[in-house]
Amino acid sequence: MKKYSLVLIVILLCIVGADNRQAEAYSVKLQKDGMYAEMLPDLVVNNATVLFKKRVKKAMQYYKKYKDADTYTLATKVPVEYLEFIPVAKKIQDSDEIIIRNPFFIYSVEGYEGYSYYFAVEKNGERLCLFSLDIHPDTGKISFGYDDMMDRYFAYDEKTMKDALFYSMDNITYAQTPQKTTVVRDRKERGPQYLMEGASSYMEEIKAKRKVFKKKNYEEKKEEIFAFLDEGKNKKVIKESEKNLKLELKDEYIETKKDTKKDGIGKGIYIAVGIAAIGGITAEIIFKKKRKNG
């Protein structure tokens, strides 16, 4: 009798836990809005929440350990990528609702191949920060990126930048909508520049690329950027980064949901099987009791 009761409890726990999630001190949700959401690698977008929480946790660990330390100790003991992010992490309270949204990519017109994917973060409906997830082109390792200067001076305005294409030329980053083009960050070096020997032909090639791109309209630029992103999904480094991230996150890794309807059916089948099993065990227990009493 005890054996059957134990099995009954286990099955009930499985059913109750089918949709149960452990609550976090603060909630972090992913909102796949914006036209880039479906164009960026799934492994990056889907795991943005997990990687963000890990960075916040690690940054706060450094803060609690060295909050009373002097400037020299902070500079030598805390890695700069965490040191810059600590002020952001400190703003997050237990009751806050964090939404990671509007993933985007800054396309390099000059052809510098990079794998940095950006996200906007909101806290209780207000902007908190921008961060990036960067894939190393050689190792395929994914790292969390936070640039305090970019966060401060990147003129990101969600309302005016809906459907904006982001691209950079000559160290100037632009956001172009069907209506207008805006400079969102300017890091161009002004004044006389001295080129290394043999670099003049390379610079002429770069200038030619810029000229061709400038002549394109919004839709033509969008087609070029999206073709680049689509092609990038199949590159070896992206496949390698998926393996690396699975090893790093283990059970926390979030797979791509290929078919949510199928997932729902599958979950329903498990629950139905559990209920059927409970019914069968219960009937067997009653039958045995009757047989014993009879």
Rank of each mutant, 00 (worst) to 15 (best):
E113R: 12
L130Q: 14
Y82L: 02
I100L: 03
S116K: 14
D96I: 06
G140W: 12
E84I: 12
Y118N: 10
L133I: 12
D94M: 01
N124G: 06
E126I: 10
I142S: 04
L133E: 07
L128R: 01
I98D: 01
A89Y: 09
L130Y: 13
E122Y: 14
Y153M: 00
C129M: 12
I100Y: 02
F105C: 12
K123G: 03
K91D: 01
D147I: 14
I106L: 09
V109L: 03
P87D: 06
I99A: 13
S108C: 06
G145L: 13
F144Y: 05
P87R: 08
M150L: 15
V121W: 01
E113F: 05
Y118E: 04
F105S: 12
V121L: 07
V109S: 03
S116M: 14
K141C: 04
D94Q: 02
Y112F: 15
P137H: 11
R101K: 13
I106Q: 07
E110F: 00
Y118C: 11
D94R: 00
E97A: 09
I86R: 01
Y153G: 00
I142P: 14
M150F: 15
V88H: 02
V88F: 04
L83T: 07
D134K: 04
D151K: 02
D151Q: 04
P103Y: 13
G111W: 00
S108P: 01
Y146M: 05
V121H: 00
Y115F: 15
G114Q: 14
K123C: 07
R127N: 10
G140N: 02
G111H: 00
Q93G: 04
D148R: 07
F85G: 06
D138E: 11
H136F: 09
F105I: 11
I92G: 08
I99K: 13
P137T: 06
A120T: 14
E122M: 10
G140V: 11
G114C: 07
R101H: 14
Y112Q: 13
F131V: 10
I92L: 02
L130V: 12
E110H: 00
V109M: 04
C129P: 03
E122R: 08
I86H: 01
E110T: 01
I135M: 07
F104A: 04
Q93L: 08
S143T: 15
